[in-house]
Design a protein around this nucleic acid. Sequence first.
DNA 1: GACTCGTGGAC
DNA 2: TGTCCAAGAGT
Length: 315
Amino acid sequence: MTAPTKPPHSSSPARGPVGVDAEAPGADLHAPVIHWFDDHARDLPWRRPEAGAWGVMVSEFMLQQTPVSRVLPVYEQWLARWPRPADLAAEAPGEAVRAWGRLGYPRRALRLHGAAVAITERHGGDVPSDHAQLLALPGIGEYTAAAVASFAYGRRHAVLDTNVRRVFARAVRGVQYPPNATTAAERKLARALLPEDEATAARWAAASMELGALVCTARNETCVRCPIAAQCAWRLAGKPEHDGPPRRGQTYAGTDRQVRGKLLAVLRDAHAPVPQAALDRVWHDPVQRARALDGLVADGLVEPLPNGLYRLPLT
DNA sequence: GACTCGTGGAC
DNA sequence: TGTCCAAGAGT
């Protein structure tokens, strides 16, 4: 999977600088990036053929806002325990939350379980390849639908994640960072840059994402290793610093999220219903503590029992 | 659009 | 040490 068929771009004719090719937008970028990918793609388990569409889908859920290094061990355990969607669908949702461990954003575990149930009920147990059908599954948005269709089934979709957005912002728009939220202009650009050929488009999607992850990183980018440095608008402009509205940072200490995390950690580690008193120990402020617990219950991550006990959801 | 939702590593 | 960041989705 790491080095399938090479695209028919091997010898691109000499071109002028930056995007002057009106016939094929981005054609001056495709070949170098894909060739770089041929040599530098990481050997990740979800890229191996035996991963299948289910493996790709599980990896995409886990990789939403979580680094590869932390996903790897959980992914392996997950696929060993639930090798098919129907296997996960047969489990209690709380088991998915427990197996999720400390990946963060545990609602993703619940949604992945829900997606497995839907796949089992509506799609005969097979991960759909159609973008609209993928989009209809819980926890799958625009990015993940495109990623699964492209990576697992070789379909032609613009796969616009934070890595690709940063690569395009720099190489094409000449700015350090993309906007905070994905814009219509970015989607239009991503579609325009998508190679016509389906297999090449899928390869391009994975390659441009990998370039952002390994070379064109948010901080300490290494342009000396970049296959398109010579054409990069940002580098050619002298790599100007980001201006405009500040990129919103995330605070964490003292937030409800931190309290929710502490509460859920207790329930994950317990294999029997937990009394209220055990949950009360994780946070000093009773108001915030109650709000966080209510939120977990409302989200379906925690199941309250009639006798004042709590556990991960059985249904 | 703005906001919420976990966790840990790097600098 | 605190800030920033990581293959987003849902409301």
